[in-house]
Design a binder for these strands. Structure first.
Length: 816
RNA sequence: GCCGGGAUGGCGGAACUGGCAGACGCGCCGGUCUCAAAAACCGGUGGCCGCAAGGCCAUGUGGGUUCGACUCCCACUCCCGGCACCA
């Protein structure tokens, strides 16, 4: 009996694959179909724990499978290396963020290799190195050139702890996505990318993404938040001014009994200028302004407002309706002012009740509704010439009427906001812009890229970019007029770096261009993208946007970068996400040393459906170890059993052959149609059980050739999951080439056919007996055989059956 | 509040298109080997009743459709995720 010496085996083959360059690909290779498998690149902070491992292991299994299917497989890896953690660590330990980052990269690379995860490391990219961020800056310039990067003063989300602004997408429930500090609002001059210009396309093209999880598409759809409606002009009484209001429910216009505008609305100050209650109103405005935006999220947030003293006219009824200033109106959405229909909107209703404003019903529910406020659609009442119409028709008719009269127009609004990319921090790609006293905002010339990030910097956060204090960086000359000028000192959001990295892998060393269009067009869209669902909105939306922009520049020929997306679930321990602070991390180095990388890989793939969260259990790991040892022992059986004397048992041969083909079929199906590694592995375990059944007597029940076929198939099927043991077994069985240079096994439908099957005999849907039948037997014969079973006769008694249902190969159901 | 997803043994999870619920693994129980233990191997393992043959009950709850429902329909409970005063 040989020892399963996984430590030796794993080292041996890792070295072999690396030296043979087995997982390298030439992008010019057109001899085979291409397959681009992309695993989201990690942020290189500290070392990996098993919770991090899942996506790399899934990716590696896919890659190895596709290699065996003879695709030219591109499997690259890189590092999303700019960002706050590096900077914070650097501040804490007084080291350079670059050193810290590069050290982590080295460590993580070693870990990935020790798990047998293969990448084409010649394509490695690191976003914090100049040969990469040069092209991130280039991307900025292109966006600027095309009017899609712009600077404006705006109320922005600011994290007081990270001392930097955040994009909308990085604010979670009013808190900083990174550190959970409540976000405050600041008025700052910042750079934005005009992602809103792509809102409709980002929404529309979700339809093309058939192989994306439905929920990710939904999240993006909700985030884009398209709504169709009408923008209505409300004339102010005794004034030539108008208040524009956006509504999706123009069918309720006859019930609009007041207007409400945001306290930040540009008209707010003017409206109250000659009010006798000016002081009170100002006090209210003050109070509203002082409330943090995050307070709105609380249940306790109370809707408050104040009558500004002016009236507007309802354009349909000509009724005078009061204009209120209210704290619940969002300045940044729509026009910052709304028409209020208290009878059909709960928020307006609450407000109207509180301040005694008229409530007028204009929609009759289709079926009786008991509620005070009916928010659904129905039949219009009290709505002049439009009474009697249903809501959806009325929306159309009223919109047309308003457009005719020039008092309103159809509009589409999005929740999506432009992407704020300025960060007041050091560890990021500098924004390639120069401010000249004569020429104003001047982009850095393309040939002057990269704008190098200086290395010896005092980077304590101050709310200003640390680059402000680096004179050599800050002071420059204007590329236009040569005057002394200053550089932009903010750096870019790291999501800019990762919005295009999947393109750079194709041409990682190219120095004239970010990538070579011809090669990119051959290799993309990415065939399979794998990563965490936490990127459902941020990274995946930004990448889609940038890709569409490059598409418009004709630099890429595909409008979506990722054809197929797989989001894996987390590995949890004791019910929580693994994290150092919780102290529940499982160290992969220990697992690899004690049980081997193959065991760890197998267990992570077997622990449950890969898209769902899974609980790490050491016992489960041990089970997988046991299984691999069981597979290993089969290799000894080749020599130890007395094959000369083997029983000439054709039934056993047939049974094992059938199992082999059945397993190939099922495993292939699980890998092709979806990522059901757990069931694929279960099938392989069944095959092993079946093999043991046919050899657990000596001499064995099956012929040696059938046994050999079974064991070879076993290791071929295992190869994507447990590559090291499979390679070793392959060699031990006398094969000369790598198992990854052999073919994925195929199956023969004919071998799968069984001659005899055992079917269930049911009475009224309950299983009462079983019957062994020949598959070729005619239905009548099967039915009569079932009816003549002693058990059936007894239960049926004398009454004849009313009906007999036969489902071929499965069951007979007798109804009486 | 709105939009998704989910609930199956002691545990993780299987189940084709409506067709024998519980594959596979873990755990547990029994056995073989051993001075003993571990490892390994073999067998058993949803619950209840029964010596047994067998029977009854069981896929979150309550109804429905069907010869037949984990699967389809209606109502409800709980859990997870996303969005959240978006007019």
């Amino acid at each position: 009996m040989t020892d399963y010496n996984f430590r030796e085996i794993e080292k041996k083959w890792q070295k072999f694959w690396q030296e043979q360059g087995l997982f390298q690909v030439d992008v010019k290779d057109r001899s085979r179909s291409k397959y681009y498998c992309l695993v989201m690149f990690p942020y290189p902070s500290s070392e990996l724990h098993v919770g991090h491992g899942r996506n790399y292991i899934i990716g590696d299994a896919v890659v190895r499978y596709k290699v065996m299917k003879r695709f030219a497989v591109l499997s690259p890896m890189g590092w999303d290396a700019f960002g706050l953690p590096a900077e914070n660590q650097a501040i804490k330990h007084k080291i350079n963020p670059k050193d810290w980052t590069l050290r982590n990269i080295k460590r993580i690379k070693e870990q990935l290799s020790s798990w047998g995860i293969m990448y084409d490391w010649r394509r490695e990219i690191t976003t914090c190195l100049p040969d990469y961020y040069k092209w991130t800056q280039w991307l900025f310039l292109k966006l600027y050139e095309n009017g899609l990067a712009y600077r404006k003063k705006a109320q922005v989300n600011y994290c007081p702890s990270c001392q930097t602004v955040l994009a909308n997408e990085q604010v979670m429930e009013g808190k900083c996505e990174r550190c959970s500090t409540p976000v405050i609002q600041k008025d700052l001059e910042q750079w934005f990318f005009r992602i809103t210009a792509y809102a409709d396309r980002l929404l529309e093209d979700l339809r093309l993404l058939n192989n994306w999880p439905e929920r990710v598409k939904l999240m993006q759809k909700n985030w884009i938040g398209r709504s169709e409606g009408v923008e209505i002009d409300f004339a102010l009484e005794n004034s030539d001014k108008k208040i524009k209001c956006f509504t999706t429910r123009v069918d309720t216009i006859f019930g609009a009994t007041f207007l409400a505008i945001s306290f930040e609305h540009p008209l707010a100050e003017k409206l109250i200028a000659d009010s006798p209650h000016k002081q009170e109103i100002k006090a209210f405005l003050q109070k509203a302004k002082s409330q943090p935006k995050s307070a709105r999220l609380l249940d306790s947030f109370e809707k408050e407002g104040v009558f500004c003293g002016k009236y507007a006219l309802n354009p349909m009824t000509q009724e005078r309706i009061p204009v209120w200033i209210a704290n619940y109106i969002l300045a940044e959405y729509g026009t910052g002012a709304i028409m209020c229909v208290p009878a059909h909107d709960r928020r307006d209703y609450e407000f109207a009740k509180k301040y005694n404003i008229k409530i007028k019903e204009v929609i009759k529910p289709l079926s009786g509704s008991e509620e005070d406020v009916y928010e659904g659609e129905g039949i219009l009442i009290n709505s002049g010439q439009f009474s009697g119409l249903n809501s959806s028709l009325a929306k159309k008719k009223i919109a047309e009427f308003m457009e005719d009269k020039g008092i309103g127009r159809r509009k589409i609004h999005y929740k999506l906001r432009d992407w704020l990319i300025s960060r007041q921090r050091y560890w990021g790609a500098p924004i390639p812009i120069i401010y000249c006293p004569n020429c104003g905002v001047v982009p850095v010339e393309e040939e002057d890229l990269p704008v190098l990030l200086p290395e010896n910097v005092e980077f304590l956060p101050t709310g200003q970019s640390p680059l402000n204090f680096v004179k050599e960086f800050l002071n420059t000359t204007c590329p236009h007029c040569g005057a002394a000028a200053k550089r932009e000192t903010d750096t870019m959001d790291t999501f800019v770096d990762s919005s295009w990295y999947y393109l750079r892998y194709i041409s990682p060393q190219e120095h004239r261009l970010p990538f070579i269009t011809e090669d990119v067009n051959r290799w993309l869209p990415v065939d399979q993208y794998i990563g965490g669902v936490e990127h459902a909105i941020l990274h995946l939306m930004y990448s889609r946007f940038i890709n569409k922009f490059l598409y418009d520049l004709k630099m890429v020929s595909f409008s979506e970068p990722f054809y197929s997306l797989f989001t894996q679930g987390m590995i949890v321990k004791d019910g929580f996400k693994m994290s150092k602070s919780k102290g529940n991390v499982v160290a992969p180095d220990y697992i690899v040393d004690t049980y081997g990388a193959d065991t760890m890989r197998l267990y992570i793939l077997f622990m449950g459906p890969p898209e769902k969260d899974a609980e790490w259990k050491d016992e489960g790991l041990v089970g997988c170890f046991r299984f691999l040892k069981r597979c290993w022992r089969l290799l000894d059986m080749r020599e130890e059993l007395d094959w000369q004397q083997s029983n000439n048992n054709q039934d056993a041969d047939q049974r094992l052959k059938r199992k082999i083909h059945q397993t190939v079929k099922e495993v292939t199906k699980d890998l092709e149609s979806s990522f059901q590694f757990n069931t694929a592995i279960a099938m392989i375990m069944e095959l092993v059980n079946e093999i043991y059944k046919s050899i657990n007597v000596n001499p064995p029940l099956v012929e040696k050739s059938v046994f050999e076929e079974a064991v070879k198939t076993l290791f071929l099927l295992l190869a994507p999951f447990t590559p090291h043991i499979s390679e070793e077994a392959w060699q031990r069985m006398g094969e000369k080439n790598s198992i990854f240079q052999s073919f994925w096994p195929s199956y023969d439908e004919k071998v799968l056919q069984e001659k005899k099957v055992n079917i269930a005999v049911m009475i009224n849907g309950k299983v009462r007996d079983h019957l062994e039948i020949d598959v070729s037997m005619p239905q009548e014969e099967i039915e009569s055989a079932a009816l003549s079973l002693a058990k059936v006769k007894e239960l049926l008694g004398s009454s004849p059956p009313q009906k007999v249902i036969y489902i071929p190969g499965r069951l007979v159901n007798i109804v009486n």
